[in-house]
């Protein structure tokens, strides 16, 4: 495993992703979700919204890092809001 060059932040990142996926699975088993239409132009399931939220967050980070001098944490906070908005109203 040494060649994979792990660092604590990336380990936490992948841990978080894995936890979210596991959580989504349990949630889906407990109460299966129904496709619905929110502010996004297509009707989505919970999983779709998670994917859109994460992809959007990734691009938001790139935007902040690439075009501004802000700390990357600002992007992360903004992403959390975006993720929440998409999951709730998307």
């Amino acid at each position: 495993m040494d060649w994979m060059a792990w660092t604590l932040p990336t380990a936490l990142f992948f841990g978080a992703i894995a936890t979210i996926l596991a959580g989504m699975t349990v949630w889906e088993l407990r109460s299966p979700c129904i496709e619905r239409k929110g502010f996004l132009p297509i009707s989505t399931t919970r999983g779709d919204r998670l994917f859109i939220g994460l992809l959007g967050s990734a691009y938001l980070h790139l935007l902040v890092v690439g075009t501004t001098d802000w700390s990357v944490w600002i992007a992360s906070v903004l992403s959390l809001f975006w993720l929440f908005a998409v999951m709730r109203w998307g």
Partner: peptide
Amino acid sequence: MMTVVNYSVQ
């Protein structure tokens, strides 16, 4: 993929 992510921050 994980390895590439690890490389990208070091």
